[in-house]
Amino acid sequence: MEYVKPAVLFKRSMVALGPYQEEEKPVENDMTGKSQLDLTELKKRSENFQNPFVKIKARNLSVYYGQTAALSNVSMEIRKQAVTALIGPSGCGKSTFLRTLNRMNDTIPGTRVTGKVFIDNINIYDPDINVVALRRMVGMVFQKSNPFPKSIVDNAAYGLRLHGIRDRDVLEEKVEESLRKAALWDEVKDRLHSSALELSGGQQQRLCIARALAVDPEILLMDEPASALDPISTAKIEELIHALKKDYTIVIVTHNMQQAARVSDYTAFFLLGEMVEYDHTQKIFEVPKDKRTEDYITGRFG
């Protein structure tokens, strides 16, 4: 893949876009799972510029919980088949930003989102977007491993069953495939029908990754996936992230700056709901442009 600096990409997109102006409109919580429009119509409504290396584009994205702004005016582009890390102190909006990418904020009452997020050039905050299909495309792994209190197989097959797949062979095949991808198959293949809660913390988290991978997402969002794990399990998760990079676009929120440096290709630094700096991971950690980034990286606060 041709390497293009994010800054260049950003400039290119700005040239193509021109000044961005858009009316602000709160998004309704639509959980009906019905979509009235087809893809072409949705594409017509969105920007006609498409950068082949960009998977996700946020434009002037702001999120309010009630009156307080958790995220203000963030615009950034996330590269395809790369790992992008979001770092910053607690409450800086990095998790909120992550949750806007599959509209998980919709499930929290009193949340208001303004601005746009484009995935493959489709605005996912369009009122006609099918949130269910969106979440199938954008998988998510949470901070606390949260397997369902069911068997390992049922956990991995949960998403598939949701989408109406009942064929046993297909389910078995998909479950094995996703467990293999999550590097868990060898450890659990002999006890697939025992409860997922009997697994260790690291295994549970990898099961959650497998569960997300089973529905064939294109983007994988990870909200501090290793923060509750021991160093060995963490290393396994990080290895896994490396392996998954070639097939998925991965966005990872992390508190651990060493982890961000180890796993990510790009890093965005958030502070007080704003995105302060976004660049190659190496640059962020070696030659940060912003004073605040430097202070955070060197451990002066946070």
Partner: peptide, 10 residues
């Protein structure tokens, strides 16, 4: 619940 919603459940 979040896990279920994130997998695209209604």
């Amino acid at each position: 619940r979040d896990a279920s919603y994130a997998l695209g459940a209604t």
